[in-house]
Simulated scan of single mutants.
Amino acid sequence: MNKSLTLYHGSSLIIEQPEFGKGNPFNDYGLGFYCTQTLELAKEWACSMEQDGYANRYSFCTDSLSILNLSDENYNILNWLSILLMNRRFNLSSDIAAQGREYLASTFLLPYENYDVIIGYRADDSYFSFASAFLNNTISLAQLEKAMFLGKLGEQVVLKSEKAFSRLCFEESIPAERTIYYPKKATRDSEARAASRAERKADPVRDAVYMIDILREEWKNDDARLRGNLPE
């Protein structure tokens, strides 16, 4: 992936020079600078109920950078979830959830901190609730996989290393009005949750695989049942 990308970062601020080592360490993939290649999504992420925001636009050269693309066919949804578990704060409301967290970390966690850039799905409010529900054994693996298609949140591109930060060049800041983009963000989330509820009713429980089944059967990273779970 040696090419130039156009990236957008949604924020309440104009950010001409992102600072390496600053930010929220409890985001999906840990400390980093979180971007998207989609302008409209950046505008949604920029706005809160109370204030407008900006989609900061950058050019980004990926030449010689190491990139972990979690949508690649070599990875599966449990790789994504195990990274999420290392960084986001989950409510482990059962022994199964606690054991599941430990097992996923020991079996499916990738060396994600070794990469300059991570590309993967964003665990917005709805996605995070789906991941938490699976860990707590209340939705199946198939339901979690299908939830990745819901809401159409798209991929985020996360700059992790100082080298990656050095390849980012600010172009402009594009205003985003909260009266337009906050309702869009809220609608996207509510539609994803509604679609998930409908999917749960349609999913046959008899053949479903849950977190407890993965623990009992000791699934491994090369299990054929996990191939191609993340949508491209």
Rank of each mutant, 00 (worst) to 15 (best):
L7D: 04
Y8F: 14
S11G: 05
I15D: 01
P18I: 00
E19M: 08
K22F: 15
N24R: 05
N27P: 02
G30Q: 02
C35M: 07
A46N: 04
Q51S: 12
G53E: 02
Y54Q: 04
N56L: 03
R57E: 12
Y58L: 06
S59V: 09
C61D: 15
C61Y: 15
C61T: 10
C61A: 15
T62Y: 13
D63Y: 15
I67W: 11
N76Y: 06
L78E: 02
W80D: 06
L84W: 13
R89F: 13
N91G: 14
S93M: 10
D95W: 12
A97S: 15
Q99V: 11
G100H: 15
R101V: 12
L104Q: 07
A105M: 13
S106V: 07
F108G: 04
F108Q: 05
L109Y: 07
L110G: 00
Y112N: 00
Y112V: 00
N114G: 03
A123N: 05
D124P: 01
S126A: 14
A131T: 06
S132R: 05
T138F: 07
T138G: 02
I139D: 00
I139T: 03
S140T: 04
S140A: 03
E145T: 09
F149R: 10
L153V: 11
E162V: 09
A164K: 00
R167V: 05
C169W: 05
C169M: 08
F170A: 07
E171K: 11
E171Q: 13
I174M: 05
P175K: 14
P175E: 08
A176D: 02
I180R: 12
I180K: 14
Y181A: 00
Y181I: 00
Y182D: 01
P183G: 00
P183F: 03
K184N: 04
A186M: 12
D189G: 02
S190H: 06
A194S: 11
A195M: 10
S196C: 09
E199L: 14
K201G: 11
K201S: 09
D203I: 06
V205P: 04
A208I: 05
Y210A: 04
D213E: 01
L215Y: 01
R216Y: 02
R216S: 13
K220I: 11
D223N: 15
A224T: 13
L226H: 07
R227W: 10
R227F: 10
N229H: 12
